[in-house]
Design a protein around this nucleic acid. Structure first.
Lengths: 302, 302
DNA sequence: CCGCGCCATACGCCTAGAGATATCACCTCA
DNA sequence: TGAGGTGATATCTCTAGGCGTATGGCGCGG
């Protein structure tokens, strides 16, 4: 990599003069007096070793050497200006790429709102959204494969990672509209003991799965799992089709499906927490912006 | 056109450090001590407004902003270096474009040698060769449509143009091998009076045409023109076919054609001069180089 | 725990370059 | 022929930037 030791001011003067072909006007456009411009050009010509302009009485023209240099000078200046602007945008978090991992169960709740507001505030940022369950998110964060994670039931503490609860929601019972319990506004958990369950497979989200089965166990019965489905959408459809009932985070209500009813469960103390995760001391302004965009669960304040 | 006021030295330091990712080695490669390098980088980061490198114990890495700036910086530097080199090459006449007009009758004589030697000495120069008769060459020179002309019978003086005789050659008679005069080594001009002539049309080169017919007139006869041909090659072919005889500049001997004989004419005083023409005070090094390459007619020295 | 590698900081020095004003040289045109 | 426009020169000032040496802070490994 060579080092062409030429002040950019000279190049700028050169380009402007090449456009104006008139020392007075060019100097005016540069906001300097005419003599300094003459000097700039002269110094540049000295460095190049050849005249760049032909000064004929009444008109200034580019020499062949000048014509050769002009496009390169222009490119160099614009490249630099653009690169600088881009670097500043990235540095200030107005541009760049943010890789977000998210748990599938959030695709219908926090994620859409989050993406919408973030996109609106930082349209220059490319969002790399990838669905992944909680454990892989944690390792991906540590490996710097993703910058931010959105997951359920975060670990309490972690040496490298930080978490913030975004939302804490109760569970609801998902029932076929024709189910006897659908007539009640509140469903005691124990009364679900006789109904077959439709759930996500445990592999899709162990924390949530275990929490749900734990709830049933606490109510005195092990859930009889009749069917697995990999998306909440499908779970609801199967429930609507009468294959069973389900227990799900309350935000599942967003899925409106004919023949499916959502009912509060009793006891209502159990809640799932949705959290953002990021690596401790991450300097990236994009992560900071995202954290600002998600806000926090009001109940999360100590 | 914006003016990114950043010393190129800083960009260079940035690029090298980005390649080495090690302050000590980068400084060594730049031929400076390490502290100045730290300063360079710091100043650049100040101008950009964001960190470009992350200094972690044991390793230096680019920040996203730095990664964004790097290609632009590289491009700017190489653009500039290349542009500078190109401008210097053009300025010193090692590169560029030279437009040469030449009279058709020279395509077989001075032109090939000239092009060969010039090409050899300045391989970077693109030669724009265009055939044109003398008068158009003069106006093309004045219009700056060509840079150099190669023509016969240059005007004695010209306010804007300069000339130098390159070659001064006698005329030869072009005869069919079977022609009675072909038996002699020297042909008195007057003896051609009875033979029909094959000549280039006057429009192709008035000066030469007039000189030839003038020679005949001086020998006491007007040439009887039996045939026109637009190239000397063709003229010779027609002569060889027995359609007539011709008078031509001696360099036509280069055309070797079965059945065609070339003979000195008497009187041998008449000569055509081939000259290079260029605009007076042309600064172009390419023109100077070409003039050096053509040399001059030894008899041209006063 | 000490030394070493690595980067940052502090200070001093010097030059190049950018700016201004004043003035000159030259061409053109009325 | 004189005025005006245009570019070059001369001179001065100021500052940014570049370099060096000396030194400080901080991990890391023997």
């Amino acid at each position: 990599m060579a080092r062409p030791d030429i002040p950019l001011a000279q190049l700028h003067a050169f380009v402007v003069l090449a456009e104006e072909l008139h020392f007075g006007r060019a100097a005016a456009r540069l906001g300097i007096a005419q003599p300094p411009l003459s000097q700039q050009i002269r110094r540049l010509e000295d460095k190049v070793g050849h005249a760049l302009f032909r000064r004929e009485p009444g008109r200034v023209t580019l020499t062949p050497a000048g014509r050769e240099l002009l496009p390169a000078a222009r490119r160099a200046l614009t490249d630099l200006a653009d690169g600088l602007a881009a670097a500043r945008a990235v540095g200030s978090g107005q541009a760049g790429r943010l890789r977000i991992g998210f748990a599938a169960s959030l695709a219908l709740t926090v994620l859409p709102d989050l993406l919408r507001t973030f996109r609106q505030r930082f349209p220059g940022v490319h969002l790399d959204i990838r669905e992944m369950t909680s454990a892989p998110q944690l390792t991906a964060l540590r490996d710097k494969t993703i910058d931010v994670g959105l997951l359920r039931e975060p670990p309490a503490v972690d040496a490298e990672l930080e978490f913030r609860t975004v939302l804490s929601e109760p569970f609801v019972a998902v029932l076929p509209a024709a189910h006897p319990l659908a007539a009640q506004r509140v469903v005691p958990l124990a009364e679900l003991a006789d109904s077959p369950f439709v759930l996500l497979p445990r592999a899709a989200g162990p924390q949530l799965y275990d929490q749900i089965t734990g709830l049933c166990a606490a109510a005195g019965f092990p859930p009889r799992i009749a069917q697995h489905a990999v998306e909440w959408q499908t779970v609801c459809a199967l429930v609507g089709a009468g294959l069973g009932v389900s227990l799900a985070p309350a935000s599942i209500r967003r899925i409106r499906l004919r023949g499916v009813a959502f009912r509060r469960v009793e006891p209502g103390t159990a809640r799932t927490r949705v959290a953002v995760a990021w690596v401790r001391n991450d300097q990236s302004p994009l992560v900071a912006h995202l954290l600002a965009a998600v806000g926090h669960d009001p109940r999360d304040r100590p």
